[in-house]
Design a protein around this nucleic acid. Sequence first.
DNA 1: ACCTGAACACCGTTCAAGT
DNA 2: ACCTGAACACCGTTCAAGT
Lengths: 199, 199
Amino acid sequence: MRSEPGGRSRLTKSGIVATARAIADAEGIDALTLRRLAHELGTGQSSLYRHVADRRELLQLLCDDLAESFPIAPPCSTPASWLRTHWALTYDFLAEHPWAAQVIASGEILAGGGEDTPRRVAEVLVAAGLAVDDADRAVRALWNLVLGHLLNAHPFGHLDGGPPLIDCRADYLWALDALLSGILRPGGAAAAGGGGQHG
Amino acid sequence: MRSEPGGRSRLTKSGIVATARAIADAEGIDALTLRRLAHELGTGQSSLYRHVADRRELLQLLCDDLAESFPIAPPCSTPASWLRTHWALTYDFLAEHPWAAQVIASGEILAGGGEDTPRRVAEVLVAAGLAVDDADRAVRALWNLVLGHLLNAHPFGHLDGGPPLIDCRADYLWALDALLSGILRPGGAAAAGGGGQHG
DNA sequence: ACCTGAACACCGTTCAAGT
DNA sequence: ACCTGAACACCGTTCAAGT
């Protein structure tokens, strides 16, 4: 892990990102300091700036790296069941890397889970009968629902006191079913508005 | 703003929170440092610790303070239209205080928009025919959808390049309609699952 | 060309000392 | 009892200097 056979320098971008990801996965995003990262790589903290512009770029690289290993559900009998399985997989995957949602939420990084995955989801939605614009909107809605559930894992909850914490995953799956039901509903989501004057 | 008439000391908890909120509203959560806050209050930074345990508690107080002024929609003809109007109001309110969603997402604070507002929403959902458990789940789903849309305001977007940024509010309203449609659907959201084996 | 230690301007937090 | 300045242990980032 200390030297790449092909490269001429010990320190490489991919090596930095791999070590950074290991720290973030194991101890959270706050533990990922440039000093800590440099120490883990056996180098000085200022050496990192030869390969990465600043901390923001490091986080961006970290998110891009994670996006490449995003899960994608295998083919399924119906669009509805594929979508449910796929977004359950997405939740489970992101739940194992809690720093990702936090980094996205910090606002300085642009998100989206790579390129291929959201496109594939949009294709399934179009195949299910949605207009292309609505399919894109639905992808963003599903993505934001996951993010919200991951980030707000203990809403209305008791951090110290109450023992019966909410089952976050079951909560998310319930919401996912509701959202998918609304998205795939005949006539589309736009037909469901209560006629509120907010627009 | 510097001295409370009734109190004997210049520095009060509510004064600290008010000034902190002003800074966060105007310049974002990162600008809200204890040094800056103390300077704004005309005092030393260590004096704040007499009234607030640490930065975490300050953020908690800030969220509690905001929760008290959460909007609540006026009575409406149908539950569906009330829910849509109410959650559009909630989005607009939180969009004016972007630090709130970020603080919640940071994970150290427990959220939920006070006590009264979520209870009122749950009541409307029960009146619309949901079981009490499902009503609570629906409140959390709606809340997390707002959070996700606020935090991930530029998904799949171009931070520097592309000019045609997504209309985040319209995006949210589309997702809100879809989710409400799924929640209020006859039979409930649980009936909509695609039969996926993920449980 | 690549790396390094020391330094700079910040943080949150603590503490002995003031009134 | 309440407040204060100085200090501590951290950050991200820069820069002159090494090889």
